[in-house]
Write a protein that binds this DNA or RNA. Structure first.
Lengths: 128, 128
DNA sequence: TAATTGATTTACGTAAAAGTCAATCAGTTC
DNA sequence: GAACTGATTGACTTTTACGTAAATCAATTA
């Protein structure tokens, strides 16, 4: 595994702008190291970016993505903290299950739409 | 089935503001009928609203939701049109499959996060 | 009929998530 | 060493999806 990635390498790999990546850094989601002023992204930063973009595709806001990322890494602390974290994990799971249901419903409507398109095509051929 | 719903009935059922519903009308996504100036929403408008909100939960923009809704209802036109529509349906399916993959990945990370929380709890109990 | 309630219209405001632009800097290639 | 390339910083701008407030209207109730 490579030690570092430059910002442009990441913009190309994930098809985002440098502005976007720097925005995520400003938001505290990524913390690349520096050589002088230029940012050097470690593999862990790259993974984080991937997780952020995944969250974005699912329609989560930056604040929600921040929460999710915190959930990923937090398994330390005392009993109360841990139990609270498990609560939050279950909450996120519910949101994800809702999204999964929404996808299933939308998929079904797509199926119906395609079917009536195909029927319409058959009609057109008959009446030709 | 009821013939009409008022705007406030819908705001309560779906937990959105009147502003939001009127905004969707401005955007041409819903077209309630009128009695005088007041809007009357038919069951089909209600279904549309449900579809819009479903799209929103999945992170689709208004423009994308508009596309999806157009896909749902368009199965008329000539052969070229229909074939193009089937293309668009398949495109949307790909997007939905990506989202489904994103959900699965996130779920897996949630599972891992929960597991390490549970391990941590066990540790705490041993060291007590 | 005065007041209340619910809905509408119009217009300005706003938060989030970047886009865009200009100035600057650091390294290196001709 | 002049010019070019890539990256950075900071400030201002834009788009999307509504929020909010004020004025208006219509129907109902006191």
């Amino acid at each position: 595994m490579r030690e570092f990635y430059t910002i442009t390498e990441l913009t190309k790999e994930f098809d985002v702008s440098t502005r976007t990546i720097r925005f995520y850094e400003d938001e505290g989601l990524i913390k690349p190291v520096r050589r002088g002023r230029t940012r050097l992204f470690r593999p862990s930063d790259r993974v984080l970016l991937k997780q952020i973009l995944r969250g974005k595709r699912l329609g989560f806001s930056i604040a929600e993505i921040r929460e999710i990322i915190e959930v990923y890494k937090a398994s330390s602390g005392e009993e109360g903290q841990i139990k609270l974290m498990i609560e939050r994990i279950n909450q996120k799971r519910k949101e994800l299950e809702q999204k999964r249901q929404d996808i299933d419903d939308t998929m079904r409507e797509m199926d119906a739409a395609e079917e009536s398109c195909i029927e319409r095509l058959a009609e057109l051929r008959v009446n030709q």
